[in-house]
């Protein structure tokens, strides 16, 4: 390993600092004792739906449509999760069912 112990600790501290900054900055910028700007309030209401969409794509970011299994197990399993959820609307059932289905697909089918 090229780094000394102190250098490694500093590197870890930098990652901690970066993470903490991205989480605390909005709260510092828009303090509770001042009215939050209307535009930020609007973003606060609309961003989550978009952020969840981004997270879904983020989870599937390494799926390749053109190589390997062409993303088939991922698409089938996402469909299974959505189907289960719209049918029963039980979060645990949808998540567990979809995951087991996916594991079976990647271990035995594709």
């Amino acid at each position: 390993m090229r780094m000394t112990f102190a250098q490694r600790m500093i590197t870890i501290a930098m990652v901690v600092l970066g993470t903490v900054l991205t989480r605390f900055i909005p709260f510092w910028f828009f303090p509770a004792d001042k009215p939050t700007p209307k535009y930020i309030q609007y973003l606060g209401k609309t961003l989550p739906s978009a952020a969840f969409g981004l997270l879904v794509i983020y989870c599937l970011k390494n799926v390749s449509v053109f190589t390997g299994s062409h993303g088939a197990p991922e698409f089938l399993a996402v469909a299974a999760v959505a189907g289960l959820h719209l049918w029963k609307r039980q979060m645990l059932l949808s998540v567990a069912g979809g995951t087991v289905f996916y594991m079976l697909l990647v271990q035995f089918v594709f």
Binding site: M1, R2, M3, T4, Q7, R8, I10, T11, I12, M14, V15, L17, G18, T19, L21, T22, R23, F24, I25, P26, F27, F30, T36, I40, L43, G44, K45, L47, P48, A50, A51, L54
Partner: peptide, 29 residues
């Protein structure tokens, strides 16, 4: 940690990867 010592790079990389948390903060005000 396996590369050369570069704390600024570590900070910038972290800020970029975690930038989406800014969205979360705005939604959780």
């Amino acid at each position: 940690l396996l590369g050369a010592f570069n704390p600024l790079q570590a900070l910038v990389m972290t800020l970029m990867i975690n930038a989406r948390h800014l969205f979360y903060g705005i939604s959780m005000l």
